[in-house]
Amino acid sequence: MNGLIKDFTKGIIAENPVFRIVLGMCPTLATSTAVENGFWMGLAVIFVLTFSNILIAAVRKAVPDKIRIPAYIVIIASFVTIVDLVMHAFVPAMYEILGIFIPLIVVNCIIFARAEAFASKNPILNSALDGIGMGIGFMLSLIVIGFVREVLGTANLAWSGHSLFGKGLGFEPALVMIMPPGAFWTMGILLGLMNLATRKPKKRRARA
């Protein structure tokens, strides 16, 4: 039981895919222009990650080692196609904003890394929880980055077209924050703050 809970929670903070392992950077930077975009992107990734983990765990003993990568790619691509069609049908406005980053979930390193490192070695239930946990970790990271960028870049917060602060927060918005350079800076500074917060008095583990 303890193992199951740990499989679920590790993805949220301890092994957060974005801030801890630094995977899946392309969609993280590209779709975190606003909280709402990050939320929908996160939702799509949670769906794909959970179901691909379940299916890969289910077939892990039947798939020969040599062809496992193409097999995983086909499984992941099938679920991405489902997400693509569903989002196109039900949330067309968001589908338009996220654009090619929906089909590009198929090459998201997080999903592939979890398939290879976890789902191919663990039972179905553990893999499902791992997928949900990692997906939630990804979504929360996107929401945090999106929050910083949206507040600084538009001086406001919006949800499905309604702004939460009426006329805004009363400072001149720094447009650069919702442009690409702002994404890199927000990510860099948040990672730096994370290092500062978790810094041990002794020598830290060297990264990169």
Binding site: F184, W185, G188, I189, L196
Partner: peptide, 15 residues
């Protein structure tokens, strides 16, 4: 700065 070594400085430079 120590806390910026590795990925953080990489992102800031790229920005």
């Amino acid at each position: 700065p120590d806390v910026l070594k590795g990925f953080p400085i990489a992102f800031i430079s790229t920005g």
